[in-house]
C-alpha cells in the first residue's frame, strides 16, 4: 500500500461496495444477467442489455485485449503529473465487457491495440484496490 495516495479514489457507494471489496481480495468480479447470460460493466442493479433485474456477481478471468489506448503525456491534474507518460486504456475482457484502466508498462511506446493483457491489483489505500493490467504472452 502506498502512503499519501493523492490521486482521486472512487467514492464507494452501496451499489459498488461488493465490487471494490472483491478487488481488495484481489478478485475482479462482474455482474452477469441470469436472463440473457451476458455480463455488463460497470455493475448495475438492472441488466443494460435486456433490463432484467435477475443478476449475479461472477468472478472474471482477468484476461482481456486492448480495445484502445492513449498515452497521457502530461498528467490528468497535478496528482498524475509525476507518472507521465502513462497508458490509459479501454480493455475488453474475455467476458465481453469493456473497462477503463491503466496498462502498467515501462516502455509505453510498445503498446498496440489487440495486445493480450491480464489484471493486476494495485492496493492504493486501505479501502481501494485498483484493477490495472499488464501485457501477457506474446
Amino acid at each position: 500500500m502506498q502512503s499519501q495516495y493523492d490521486k482521486p479514489v472512487p467514492h464507494i457507494d452501496e451499489e459498488s461496495r461488493p465490487y471494490w471489496a472483491a478487488l481488495k481480495r484481489e478478485k475482479l468480479i462482474l455482474k452477469r444477467c441470469l436472463a440473457c447470460s451476458r455480463h455488463h460493466f460497470y455493475p448495475r442493479i438492472l441488466c443494460p442489455h435486456c433490463h432484467s433485474c435477475e443478476l449475479k456477481w461472477s468472478e472474471a478471468s482477468g484476461l482481456g485485449t486492448i480495445y484502445s489506448f492513449t498515452i497521457a503525456r502530461r498528467g490528468a491534474g497535478p496528482a498524475f503529473s509525476a507518472d507521465a507518460p502513462y497508458a490509459v486504456a479501454i480493455v475488453e475482457l474475455d467476458e465481453g465487457v469493456r473497462m477503463m484502466t491503466n496498462i502498467v508498462i515501462e516502455n509505453v511506446d510498445i503498446l498496440a491495440i489487440g495486445q493480450r493483457v491480464g489484471v493486476i491489483f494495485e492496493h492504493v489505500t486501505e479501502d481501494v484496490t485498483l484493477p490495472k493490467f499488464k501485457l501477457i504472452g506474446s
Binding site: 490521486k7 482521486p8 479514489v9 472512487p10 467514492h11 464507494i12 457507494d13 459498488s16 460493466f41 460497470y42 492513449t70 497521457a72 502530461r74 498528467g75 490528468a76 491534474g77 496528482a79 498524475f80 507518472d83 502513462y86 490509459v88 473497462m99 477503463m100 484502466t101 491503466n102 481501494v128 485498483l130 490495472k132
Partner: peptide, 13 residues
C-alpha cells in the same frame, strides 16, 4: 462518484 468512480481513478486526461 456514481458512474465516474469507474473512470476517474485511472487519470485519463
Amino acid at each position: 462518484s456514481l458512474t465516474m468512480q469507474y473512470e476517474t481513478p485511472w487519470g485519463m486526461p
